[in-house]
Computed example of a mutant assay.
Amino acid sequence: MRVGYGGGIPPNIGEGDRAAGADGIRENLDPSWLRGDPPWVDLFTVWLREAIEARIPEPNAMVLGTVDADGHPATRTVLCKGADAAGIVFFTGYDSDKGRHLAANPYASVTFPWIALERQVNVRGRIDHVGMEETHAHWFNRPRGSQLSAYASEQSRPIGSRTDLEAKAAAVAEEFGGFDDGAEIPVPSDWGGFRLVPTVVEFWQGRANRLHNRVRLTLLDDGWRAERLQP
């Protein structure tokens, strides 16, 4: 099933910015939009804010792609917990599938699929561990229930039933004094943050008749290069 991108009549050749896209935004994404240091940050920040303002569900959700030790790819959706000039941050168990993949191949790709706005941003680059100070700051800002679940879960490991999983969580809650209140829950030794340090960032904007706009930034030895790509 193919989803339409609006407008059965193609825009006139040469209309450029005057040709309204299927999303109703007349301005066409252009390499000149990419400014700042590094040049992807400003536009990414604007698009993320607009996704939040549009009330898109989980606007900070991103599809994370990794490759295991045998060269097999895997994807899953995770939540972005930080985005600035240093890179894109997320948190997980180090012994999870993605944690083991990143230990074997410390490179990854993430895609923010803001489909309702007909926008995507893809970021690729190496993976670094987030420092303990940043990990602790994030952990102790999480709701207590999320802390308990992360502490109880041996992420990506098999378990017999939902009842068994809930029993593990209840045992951890009892150990620390309850679900709603009790002793401080420490950061698990096998849990923490990763930062994707970008070397490639691509912005995608949907247009009518699938004549989409793509602009890619690539980090070279002498700095960032921006170029328009054919859809």
Rank of each mutant, 00 (worst) to 15 (best):
V3W: 01
G4E: 05
G6D: 06
G6A: 13
G8T: 08
G8Y: 07
G8W: 02
I9T: 12
I9G: 03
P10I: 01
D17G: 08
R18Q: 14
A19R: 04
A20Y: 03
A22C: 15
G24W: 02
R26F: 14
R26I: 15
P31G: 13
W33V: 06
D37W: 04
D42K: 11
W47G: 11
L48I: 09
R49P: 05
E50M: 07
E50P: 05
A51F: 02
E53D: 15
A54N: 10
P57I: 01
A61K: 02
V63E: 13
G65F: 03
G65Q: 02
D68V: 00
A69L: 05
A74W: 12
A74T: 13
A74P: 08
T77C: 14
C80W: 00
G82N: 06
G87D: 04
I88R: 02
I88S: 01
V89H: 00
F90P: 03
F90D: 03
F90G: 07
D95Y: 09
D95S: 14
D97F: 15
D97C: 09
H101S: 11
L102Q: 09
L102A: 14
A103L: 06
A104E: 06
Y107L: 03
A108G: 11
A108Y: 00
S109C: 10
T111C: 15
T111V: 15
F112I: 03
L117F: 00
R119G: 00
R119D: 01
V123M: 12
V123E: 05
R126Y: 00
G131W: 00
G131D: 15
E133W: 00
H136R: 12
A137P: 03
A137G: 09
R142K: 06
G145C: 07
S146N: 14
Q147H: 04
S149E: 11
Y151F: 11
A152L: 07
A152H: 06
I159D: 06
T163Q: 13
D164T: 12
L165Y: 14
A167T: 05
A169S: 10
A170P: 06
A171R: 14
V172Q: 04
E175V: 03
G177W: 00
F179K: 15
D180Q: 13
D180S: 14
A183E: 14
E184C: 06
I185C: 07
P186Q: 11
V187R: 09
P188V: 01
F194W: 15
V200E: 11
V200A: 07
V201A: 12
Q205M: 01
G206S: 10
G206N: 12
N209F: 00
N209W: 00
N209K: 05
L211V: 13
H212P: 11
V215S: 05
L219H: 09
L220H: 12
D221L: 08
G223R: 01
R225N: 08
E227A: 12
P231R: 08
P231A: 15
